[in-house]
């Protein structure tokens, strides 16, 4: 469930950026990695855990903004595939810089509320798992409030629905897309901060997360935030279930087979809207 919650956050970040700019951002996992790594180094340098975490989220957000301004926006007219490759190039770059500036080792963070597990009906539950679940819920609520209550949030939704129309109504879509990148990066980093006490992190941890997050976003239906969250949770549960009851070796296989089956019956994912191609 913890793992699923993190997938959900990555998928959500994916969806936000995709909606505002049609870019499938394969560097999304790097934000999670940065969240964990920067927090660790801040904490190790003597900052209080909370301050280090905020610092990490800010760093990730700045990296997200730079990613958009320096790599995505200049290539605005490129095809979706080209944009994907640009984000992959950017993720190699971010990993490389992290390995040099920070380091290449695995790191962990202390759990926020100790390590003593609760025992509920024979099953054990970690305090940190609750923190993750609680944190993810908070992020979702905050995001929902932002989208429905603020002007910037509403213009984000409008841009997602129809960019040209949004531009015509006077929305600065460039600023809106920047916001989407910043928020996605921050969400990813929060995921990294929350999960690192359980999952550990290192400079190369982002690739796998981006992959799983992408799969979750697609499973839920590309572009649907609710679908992204559900997709992430389902993916995490599937993995846990097959590790415990079927085969640990083919855990990822089970997850992907389920995704394939879902796509064969629902080619637009669980919550995807039917898209109509205009000729």
């Amino acid at each position: 469930m913890t793992v699923g919650a993190i997938y959900a956050l990555v998928a959500l970040g994916f969806t936000l950026i995709y909606n505002s700019s049609d870019v499938a951002n394969f560097a999304q996992g790097e934000f999670v990695m940065l969240g964990g790594m920067v927090t660790f180094f801040g904490y190790a340098a003597g900052l209080p855990l909370f301050v280090a975490a905020v610092l990490a989220i800010v760093v990730a957000a700045v990296v997200g903004l730079l990613l958009y301004r320096l790599a995505i926006e200049p290539a605005r007219r490129a095809s979706p595939v080209t944009l994907i490759i640009i984000t992959i190039g950017a993720s190699i770059f971010i990993r490389g810089v992290t390995a040099i500036v920070l380091d290449k080792n695995f790191h962990s963070l202390p759990s926020f509320f100790g390590n003593e597990p609760f025992v509920i009906g024979g099953a054990t539950l970690l305090p940190q798992s609750l923190v993750v679940m609680f944190g993810v819920s908070l992020v979702l609520i905050a995001l929902w409030l932002f989208m429905s209550r603020t002007l910037r949030g509403k213009s984000l939704l409008a841009t997602a629905a129809n960019r040209t129309a949004a531009q015509l109504t006077g929305i600065n879509t460039r600023a809106v897309t920047s916001t989407a990148f910043v928020i996605s990066a921050a969400i990813g980093a929060i995921g990294g901060v929350l999960a690192t006490p359980i999952t550990l992190t290192y400079y190369d941890a982002g690739t796998l997360l981006a992959l799983k997050g992408f799969a979750a976003a697609v499973l839920g239906g590309m572009g649907n935030p609710l679908g992204a969250v559900v997709g992430g949770l389902v993916l995490g549960l599937l993995e846990q279930f097959s590790a415990g009851y079927l085969s640990s070796q083919y855990k990822d296989a089970v997850a992907f087979i389920v995704i394939l089956l879902v796509l064969f019956t629902m080619p637009q994912g669980l919550f995807g809207a039917k898209s109509v191609e205009r000729v």
């Binding site: 490129a78 095809s79 640009i86 190039g89 950017a90 971010i94 990993r95 490389g96 040099i100």
Partner: peptide
Amino acid sequence: EYEHVVLGAIIVVFLILLPSG
């Protein structure tokens, strides 16, 4: 050690300048 940084930067820069390949 700057190998990967340079590789990533080259991919990004090439595709920004030459988006169709």
